Computed example of a mutant assay.
Amino acid sequence: MHSASQESLKPEVPVRAAASSTGAKPKKTAAMESLEDITYGSVAGVVGKYIEYPFDTVKVRLQSQPDHLPLRYKGPFDCFRQSIRADGFLGLYRGISAPLVGAAIETSSLFFFERIGREAVYASGFSSPDQPLPLPALWWTGAFSGAFTSFLLTPIELVKCKIQVPETEAGVVKAPLRPIPVIKDIFRHQGLLGFWHGQLGTLIREAGGCAAWFGCKETASKLLRDWNERHAETPAELEAMRSEGLPLWQQAVAGASAGMSYNFLFFPADTVKSRMQTTPIGDSAQKRTFGAETKALWKQAGIKGFYRGCGITVLRSAPSSAFIFMVFDGLKKYFPMQ
């Protein structure tokens, strides 16, 4: 999920003498590239999280409905209605502190590991460093990035999910949970490894989803660039298009398509993961494996059960992902770190 355009994937010629004689900027160091990825990725992730969080809360509540009781919510709109009536609109932002940290860590890690993946591809000799990576390689770097990021993300999502879904006792909703007590409770009952409960679901979602996220973003960007170049009327207009990159609305379209593909393709894995992570701490169901949780959901609701909340998730991912890419690419372009 590095820069929005393929032009950004072309490394600068590492010849210091040539750079000084032409006035061109020297190539950034790996440390500076990493600092940009982490800083700008964190900012972009926080912006995206504020946009999507109310929809994410509804999604988790729909996904985590128990398999031994009648469904509490009829659908996304009913879940919105009941949630706002019970807690007000701000209740949809319950537990956002941990996800904001998670969003910063997730997005910056995705950009960081994606660049590491590209460097690994160049080092393997699969592609020449003076050429942009082919699209299949960009799908692979996305999967590489998502796989590594999943190990950072699972503990954060575990805390988030437990806060987002209200606990009930004798039909009465308990007081909202807070991050620190939840963290202490998890450690007391499950130890350190308990924070990676649901890791397999996160791994499948992030590796597959991020392959689609980066891959679809770059695929859509390439199609839009080709379309722009075919419709250029003069050589000067063509050169301007190549130097300036995609216009803002096209960046948004490419980013939105990336977010929608990420969330739709591997949504069942996320559903199973959310069910595992929202079981009460100490509950016997907490011991269910990914396979056992999958079987229980299939037995209860069939294929439809795996897609509860999918529509609203795909819908909210379009603006969120578009803003993430636009913020990240804009910061990289207009505020480069030297």
Rank of each mutant, 00 (worst) to 15 (best):
Tyr50Ser: 12
Thr141Trp: 15
Glu7Ala: 06
Trp249Gly: 03
Ser20Gly: 06
Thr279Pro: 00
Cys79Ala: 07
Phe323Thr: 05
Phe111Val: 08
Val15Gly: 15
Ala143Met: 12
Phe328Cys: 15
Gln6Tyr: 10
Ser21Glu: 05
Ala170Glu: 10
Ala269Met: 11
Gly95Glu: 02
Pro319Tyr: 07
Arg308Pro: 02
Leu246Phe: 14
Ser243Tyr: 01
Leu135Ala: 14
Phe267Ser: 00
Pro280Gly: 03
His197Leu: 07
Pro54Thr: 10
Leu153Trp: 00
Ser284Leu: 10
Gln286Thr: 12
Ala254Ser: 08
Ser243Leu: 10
Ile186Lys: 02
Leu92Gln: 00
Lys287Ser: 11
Leu35Pro: 13
Pro235Val: 02
Ile163Gly: 00
Pro280Tyr: 00
Trp196Tyr: 15
Leu238Met: 08
Ile186Ala: 03
Val43Ala: 05
Gly45His: 01
Trp196His: 15
Gln65Lys: 02
Val159Tyr: 01
Lys273Asn: 08
Ala19Trp: 02
Thr154Lys: 09
Glu206His: 07
Gln277Tyr: 09
Ile116Lys: 08
Thr279Met: 04
Phe89Cys: 08
Gly259Gln: 14
Gly91Arg: 02
Lys184His: 13
Gln63Arg: 04
Glu167Pro: 06
Phe112Ala: 10
Gly305Trp: 01
Pro136Thr: 09
Leu203Gly: 04
Asp37Ala: 07
Phe267Lys: 00
Arg225Lys: 10
Gly117Trp: 11
Leu315Pro: 06
Ala44Met: 03
Ile38Trp: 08
Lys160Gln: 11
Gly198Glu: 01
Arg115Asn: 05
